[in-house]
């Protein structure tokens, strides 16, 4: 049963990666990239159950936090073109 779930998640990953490649805007890619992260977390969790080693969940939890930060960082980068945005620079 875990194998079926894994196949489903991998199939979903393929579909989402197609959207990452096709775009067309940067926001489509960020959205799909974030979904790839979510699916990777689910994949790691299911993989842990498939191997009988649920310790994998710690990795999934860490990946979840990283996924949030990386997505927000990418969004901020494309909004301001700069990670350490300083509002005063806009005037200069």
């Amino acid at each position: 049963m875990f194998a079926a779930a894994m196949i489903a998640v991998i199939a979903a990953l393929v579909l989402v990666v197609i959207r990452v490649v096709k775009g067309p805007t940067i926001f489509d890619r960020v959205l799909a990239g974030n979904s790839v992260g979510t699916l990777a977390i689910i994949l790691v969790a299911v993989l842990g159950f498939l191997n009988g080693r649920p310790e994998f969940l710690d990795i999934a939890l860490t990946y979840g936090v990283l996924n949030l930060i990386s997505t927000l960082a990418i969004l901020k980068f494309f909004r301001h073109g700069d990670l350490a945005h300083d509002a005063q620079e806009d005037d200069a």
């Binding site: 049963m1 779930a5 489903a8 805007t25």
Partner: peptide
């Protein structure tokens, strides 16, 4: 529950592929 979750995951991925804008 696992099968239902898998189905919704595939449906969501299909939607990301199919819908017209961000």
């Amino acid at each position: 529950l696992i099968l239902a979750g898998s189905a919704f995951i595939i449906v969501g991925a299909l939607g990301i592929l199919r819908f017209p804008d961000v």
